[in-house]
């Protein structure tokens, strides 16, 4: 995702007036590609880095005391 974020800053497309597919400005096409890449990147991340213990952690009983929100000072 860090690579996608860096590629988002596409300064080389700043002055480009060319088009892709006959109608899409190159800069816009690049950024639309960034959105697609972001979705693909997150899909990949979900499979390789999913926090599998979160649900088990959330199901544990709370051990916060009733006065946890009280400012002891």
């Amino acid at each position: 995702m860090a690579v996608i974020t860096v590629l988002h800053f596409d300064f080389w497309n700043w002055e480009t007036t060319s088009v892709v597919l006959g109608f899409l400005p190159t800069g816009l096409a690049w950024q639309a590609g960034i959105s697609l890449a972001a979705a693909a990147g997150w899909a990949l991340l979900m499979n390789v880095a999913w926090p599998s213990r979160v649900e088990e952690w959330a199901a544990r009983p709370s051990a916060l005391s009733d006065d946890a929100a009280e400012d002891p000072s």
């Binding site: 400005p25 960034i34 972001a38 997150w42």
Partner: peptide
Amino acid sequence: GNGVYGLMASASGIVHSAVFF
């Protein structure tokens, strides 16, 4: 101009999902 997509939308696509995750 068309840079508004990069400025506001694709940046949000990256950051919003990162925040959700």
